Simulated scan of single mutants.
Amino acid sequence: MPYHWTDPDPDRRQLQLWPHNSLPPRGLAIFVLATFALLMVPLLSVLGSVLLWGLLPFILLAVGGVWYALGRSYRDRRILETLTLDETMARLTRRNPDGQELAWECNRYWATVEMHPHGGPVEHYVTLKGAGREVEIGAFLSEEEREALYLELLAAFRR
C-alpha cells in the first residue's frame, strides 16, 4: 500500500501517504527506449533516401511526446501527506507537486474520522474533522486502500 505508519517515539505516531506509481523510473526509460526502437524499424526501408529526413522529425516528436507525458505524470503525482498524532494534537500536512504545503491541526480529543461512501469526489471519501474544518486524506488512494485507511485511522485516534 502506498502509505505506512512509523513510531518516531513512544508518544507519537506518524502516517505518510503518497500516490501509487505503477511504472518505476527505470521502467519509464526502458519504455521510451523501446518505443523509439519500434518506431525506427519502419525507417529501415527508407534508409539512405530523402524520405528518411521527412519522417524522422515526426518519429522524434512522437517519442518526445511520450517522454513528456510520462514525465508530467510523475511530476503531478509528487504528493506527500503526513499525519502526526501525539498525545494531545493531530496534525495533517500535505505537500503538493508545486511545493505548496497545506496544514491542518486539531486537538486530538475533538478530531473525528469520517467516511463518505457516496457524494464525495471519490467513492469512500475519508476526511478528518475538527477545529472548525474538514480536510480530506488519501483521496488519491484506491477505493480499497481508502477503506483500509479509514479503519486504521479509527483505531489510531482511539488510542
Rank of each mutant, 00 (worst) to 15 (best):
A90V: 00
H20C: 13
Q14Y: 03
R13P: 01
D9H: 15
W53Y: 15
W5C: 09
L128E: 03
L102M: 10
G120K: 04
V50E: 10
D76C: 13
W67S: 01
V113C: 08
G99L: 14
G132P: 00
T35R: 08
V122D: 05
L92W: 04
F36K: 10
E134A: 12
S22A: 14
T82D: 04
L55Y: 14
G138M: 05
M40Y: 11
P117N: 08
G48P: 04
G54A: 09
S73A: 13
N96E: 15
D86T: 10
H118W: 13
V46H: 03
H124V: 03
T93I: 03
A34T: 15
L70H: 06
L92M: 02
A155K: 07
F36E: 10
R94E: 14
S73D: 15
G99R: 15
D98P: 00
A103K: 13
R94V: 13
G27R: 13
D86Q: 08
D86C: 02
A148W: 03
L38T: 07
E147I: 01
E136N: 12
L39P: 02
L85I: 06
Y109K: 10
E147C: 10
E87Q: 11
A37H: 02
A37C: 11
R146F: 04
P57N: 13
N21Q: 12
T35I: 01
L141C: 06
E105S: 14
L44V: 14
T6V: 08
M1W: 02
N21T: 11
A69N: 02
E87N: 14
P57A: 11
E101S: 12
W5I: 08
E143G: 08
P121W: 09
A139M: 14
L28D: 11
Y3N: 03
G138V: 02
R72S: 03
T88E: 09
P57S: 10
I30N: 07
A62C: 06
L153H: 01
L44I: 07
W104Y: 09
G65C: 04
L23Q: 11
A139F: 07
L128H: 07
F31D: 10
Q14V: 14
Y3F: 12
P8C: 02
T82S: 08
P19I: 07
R72G: 04
L38I: 09
W67T: 01
A69K: 12
Y68K: 05
F157T: 00
S45M: 03
R91C: 10
E101W: 04
R26D: 13
W18M: 13
V41Y: 06
F31I: 15
L56H: 11
S49G: 01
Y68M: 06
L153N: 00
P57R: 09
Q16Y: 09
G99K: 11
E87R: 11
H4V: 04
E123K: 12
H118G: 11
G27E: 05
L154G: 01
L43F: 05
A37Y: 08
R12C: 15
L44G: 14
R158I: 06
G71M: 13
A155C: 01
Y125D: 01
A69F: 12
L61A: 12
E144Y: 12
P19L: 06
A148R: 10
E81D: 12
F58H: 01
Y74L: 13
T112G: 14
Q14G: 05
I59E: 15
G54Q: 07
V46M: 09
E101H: 00
F58A: 05
L61V: 03
L15Y: 03
T84H: 04
E145V: 06
